[in-house]
Nucleic acid binder design. Structure first.
Lengths: 141, 141
DNA sequence: CTTGACTCTGGAGTTTACTCTAGGGTTTAA
DNA sequence: TTAAACCCTAGAGTAAACTCCAGAGTCAAG
């Protein structure tokens, strides 16, 4: 048997670093659901919902919408062979999206690093330069 | 002399893949500004504004808000030594933000790839697995 | 057994980032 | 020279993702 720790909405909110309103909003949108309800109607959440909330926060931070996040969370491999090809195609699409985001961030990071280095007061410190120029040129400095 | 191609708002919108309303909205927010205005009040935009629009689109796609993008675009290295340390600190903060986003996307991509491989109907195809389990475990399959 | 912290529902309000409309002037091609 | 296709401003409307509120029930401590 595995121990099933349950949290009230306020506890879960604190652990996940979101507001109780946000949790109820996500429930309404179908992103998470309470494990159960108490006799008086209080929501009980499991560890799994905490993981989902953390996943949502981190995934939101890299530019996915709640709808896209719902799609990501819906990607499940299970014994139903019928949907396997389907799941795979969606997954491959998502990989492309994620790869494109990473490539973009790498470019931005590279430009920022060039800017930081130039800021060191080195040989180029009297140049004029912006992140846009760094992004759009191979030899900006 | 460098040739300065100028665009009307509609031309710029088409080239950047945004609406004319979006361009005017960005101008209002201070993200871009027309190079000049015609006698009749028409905006004229330069190549530089086109680059800015493209930068905004790509940066928005990786989870930055318009305010954050404005900050990024404001990072300029120029001959005023007084602000150099300042610029560098902001730049280093941004690099950290960007690096964190990349790390997060790498984790998501890795999980998606495991899911795609498992979808191939290989040895693990009768397992039940979700992206959350893949993210939260080292040996999910 | 009451008081304060918590929870519930339903609905209104806010912020961000557009998007659209109205009512007008401008450009350009036929 | 006129009509389609563009541009202008000001302001209203929309979608996503919260955030806040009112009015009421629940729970745990003293």
């Amino acid at each position: 048997m595995k121990k099933t720790q349950l949290y009230k909405i306020g506890e879960l909110a604190k652990l996940a670093g979101v507001s109780v309103d946000t949790i109820r909003f996500y429930e309404e949108k179908g992103l998470i659901a309470p494990h159960s309800r108490s006799a008086s109607g209080y929501r009980w959440f499991s560890e799994q919902e905490l993981e989902k909330l953390r996943f949502i926060q981190r995934t939101k931070a890299v530019g996915f919408t709640l709808n896209e996040i719902a799609e990501l969370m819906a990607l499940k491999l299970h014994p139903d062979a019928h949907t396997c090809e389907e799941v795979k195609n969606v997954t491959l699409d998502k990989i492309d999206q994620v790869s494109a985001k990473i490539a973009e961030l790498d470019k931005i990071r590279h430009s920022l690093q060039q800017l930081a280095v130039a800021c060191d007061g080195g040989a180029h410190s009297s140049q004029h330069c912006t992140i846009l120029q760094l992004l759009n040129s191979d030899t900006p400095l």
